[in-house]
Nucleic acid binder design. Structure first.
Length: 154
DNA sequence: GCCAACGTTGGC
DNA sequence: GCCAACGTTGGC
């Protein structure tokens, strides 16, 4: 049973455009247990939304696909690196990541404001007050609705 | 095991 | 730049 996900990224750090150029990328640097656990549930072929956060108009901008299931996040092993965490070792990794691949952009980015305005999306994790989870599950309905919104102008 | 302090996220 | 919300840390 394939599932749907939402991947948050600050475009200044890593943008959907960069993913288009790279083709695929390890989703490294996640240091939150809930987000990690979500990644550990992913299967290859699962689809997701790529969401740009911390910008003037936050929005879901594209579609991605999981192309490799969870494996140890090597950035946790990089001494001196931004994501180094000595509690995680190759023998006993604490942090995991998946690989995600570029699929296609949404014809029209679906802004956070537009999602908030959509009654059928009430209940979506992203819209909950104070939520900060960088990797979130989407229900099939939420996936379908956002994709549909992305096919037409607001 | 509790919980206050702290750091980070992210919309506004 | 502000600050509410929340996860994590660490003293006890």
């Amino acid at each position: 049973m394939s599932r749907y996900w939402l991947f948050k990224s600050e475009p200044d750090a890593y943008s959907f455009e960069q993913l288009r150029i790279d083709g695929s990328t390890p989703w490294s640097g996640v240091r939150n247990f809930q987000a990690r656990n979500n990644m550990m549930e992913m299967q290859t072929g699962d689809l997701g939304l790529f969401y740009h956060s911390s910008i003037p108009v936050p929005a879901a901008v594209g579609i991605v696909k999981v192309v490799r299931t969870a494996y140890p996040d090597f950035t946790a092993f990089e001494r001196g690196g931004e994501y180094y965490d000595p509690r995680s070792t190759p023998e006993k990794p604490m942090w995991m990541m998946v690989d995600v691949a570029y699929v296609e952009p949404l014809a029209y980015p679906v802004t956070l404001a537009r999602m908030r305005d959509e009654p059928r999306l009430v209940g979506m994790a992203l819209l909950k007050r104070g939520q900060r989870l960088s990797v979130q599950p989407l229900t099939p309905q939420e996936w379908k609705i956002v994709r549909e919104l992305g096919t037409r102008e607001a």
